[in-house]
Simulated assay, not measured.
Amino acid sequence: MKRLLYKLGVATAAATLAATALVATPAQAAGHGEGWYGVWASNVNVRQDSSEQCYDAPAPWACPNILTKVSAPQQVYIVCQKAGETVGGNPYWVMVRANGVQGWMASYYTNNATNWIDGLDIC
C-alpha cells in the first residue's frame, strides 16, 4: 500500500511539474533592454503618440489621448525610452505594447530598479 501511494505521489508531482512547464509566461527583461516589464500601479495610462510635441517630449498634456490602461500585475512590452515630463521623480517615458496597442507610458510605473532602463534604445 505504501509503495502504491508513493508511486501515485510521484506521478502526481511529475504531472504537476509538466503542466507548470507548459504555461507560457513572458520572460522578464529585468532592466536590460527591450522586453517584458511588470507594472506596479493600477489604471496606468498608455497614451497615443499623436503629435510632434508628444514624440519630442512625452507628457500628459502633449499626449492627451489615452489608448488603454494597464494595472498590476500586468506586463507591458517595452520597445524604447526617452526623456519627457517627470512623473514621480522619473524623467523617462517608455514606448510600450499593451492590450493590442502601442503608446507612451511613464517609466515611473514599470518594475525596474532605476529610472533609466539599461540596454534599451532611445526612441
Rank of each mutant, 00 (worst) to 15 (best):
A14F: 04
Q28K: 13
G33S: 04
N65E: 15
V44W: 00
N45G: 07
V10P: 03
V87W: 01
A57Q: 12
P73R: 04
P73N: 06
T114H: 14
P58T: 02
T25N: 08
T20I: 10
G35Y: 00
N65M: 14
N45T: 08
Q102K: 13
D49M: 13
V39P: 00
Q74V: 03
V87N: 03
V46C: 06
S42V: 09
E52S: 11
L67F: 11
L8T: 00
K69W: 07
I66W: 04
A62R: 09
Q75S: 08
V79R: 09
Y55T: 11
G88M: 02
G35P: 00
R97Y: 11
C123P: 05
L17C: 13
W116I: 08
A57H: 13
A15F: 09
G38N: 01
V23T: 07
Q75A: 08
I122C: 11
K69R: 15
G38S: 04
W61Y: 14
W36D: 02
D118F: 11
A59C: 10
G33R: 06
Q81Y: 03
T20K: 05
P26Q: 07
T68R: 05
A27N: 10
C63W: 02
R3M: 13
N111W: 04
V44M: 04
S50V: 12
V87D: 01
A72V: 00
L4C: 09
N43D: 15
A21T: 01
A72S: 15
T20S: 11
S51V: 07
A14W: 03
G89V: 05
G35F: 02
G31I: 03
A57M: 11
M1A: 14
L17D: 02
S107G: 15
E34L: 02
K82N: 13
Q48I: 08
A41Y: 14
N45V: 03
G33A: 05
T20C: 11
G89M: 11
M105E: 05
A30K: 10
D121T: 07
H32Y: 12
A27M: 13
G103H: 05
Y109R: 00
G88Y: 03
A21Q: 02
G100C: 09
Y108I: 01
V39S: 01
V44P: 00
A21Y: 04
K2R: 15
Q74E: 15
Y92L: 13
C123Q: 04
V10F: 10
A98N: 02
V101L: 03
P91T: 04
T25C: 06
C123V: 06
Q75R: 08
L17R: 05
T12H: 03
L5Y: 12
A83F: 09
V96D: 01
N45W: 07
D121F: 06
N45E: 10
Q102H: 10
S42G: 08
